[in-house]
């Protein structure tokens, strides 16, 4: 345990580069990010990254494949489909709030909303739809909203992630803020997201293999045995923040919206593989 942490601390201090900060260039970041992992793990194909921690242990992968024979998230997808199809009291429905009726669009999220100047995740878009039709927003971490997002994501299975950063100062600022959040150490244990999911990707920590940051968003929402239900990406952010003894941000905060924007953009081109199952 102590040794695992010490190793990760040591790894994390080996920074990949020390070049001066450049002007914001998301496309160049993406190329460098994906290139970094492809050099680190030359035997993995790009689409393999969506399998996260299961790329690093044949044993874990075999167990996981077995679990997937009766996918534990299928209840959530069914419940989400029913909720998605249910009319609101005003007669409208979720489909009316989304392009293409909300089917096969998950790969385009998070999106930058030019009207509000904010990043909108698929979960937040579901809540905005509800509020527009006089309904209360749902929890962004689990329950009905996670089910609805799981259903919507299932209709995008295999579609390449396609997050767009428009040439708008506010969108670029949001992307940059997400990037800074991802690489900044925080919490009493002094780790950044990148310490574990970039520098220590593929290493073992407390019996779990650390998923590489590339492809890390592709399987969400996920059913986690540890949770006993389906949770969203934000739920995972909260868990990973707490792990390093850092107070998590609010589920709908700018910090988490921007983090999701940056992190999902880094996986552009990889296929949507959600909902997923994890231990």
């Amino acid at each position: 345990m102590k040794r695992a942490w010490a190793m990760i601390v040591a790894l994390a201090t080996l920074a990949p580069g020390l070049a001066p900060p450049a002007k914001a260039d998301p496309a160049a970041d993406l190329k460098a990010f994906q290139g970094y992992f492809q050099t680190r793990f030359p035997t993995l194909a790009l689409q393999d990254y969506v399998n996260g921690p299961y790329n690093f242990s044949a044993n874990d992968r075999a167990q996981w494949k077995q679990i997937l024979e009766f996918p534990p998230y299928s209840f959530a997808v069914d419940a989400g489909k029913t909720a998605f199809g249910t009319k609101f009291p005003d007669g409208a429905d979720y489909a009316s709030c989304f392009p293409r009726g909300g089917i096969g669009i998950a790969q385009d999220y998070p999106k930058f909303d030019e009207k509000t100047g904010k990043v909108v995740t698929l979960g937040i878009a579901v809540n905005e739809c509800r509020e527009r039709h006089g309904l209360k927003p749902l929890s962004l971490t689990k329950g009905e909203l996670a089910d609805i997002v799981a259903y919507m994501t299932s209709t995008s299975d295999g579609k390449p992630i396609h997050v767009v950063i428009p040439n708008d100062k506010r969108a670029i600022a949001a992307y940059e803020a997400g990037k800074e959040y991802f690489y900044s150490r925080r919490g009493q244990l002094n780790f950044s997201c990148a310490s574990c999911h970039v520098q220590a990707a593929g290493k073992r920590l407390r019996g779990q293999y650390l998923a590489p940051a590339l492809g890390i968003t592709a399987s969400f929402p996920v059913y986690r045995s540890k949770w006993g239900d389906v949770g969203t990406l934000v739920r995972r952010f909260i868990g990973c923040n707490k792990k390093v003894r850092s107070v998590p941000a609010k589920p709908d905060s700018a910090a988490y919206r921007d983090l999701a924007y940056f992190l999902t953009y880094m996986s552009n081109g990889l296929p949507i593989a959600g909902p997923g199952a994890r231990s």
Partner: peptide, 23 residues
Amino acid sequence: ALAAASIAQARSQKRLWQNAVPR
């Protein structure tokens, strides 16, 4: 004291985070 340490961390990270970005 813990809050002071976290403030120092946050302020130093404003610069240092750049060093962890793959290039």
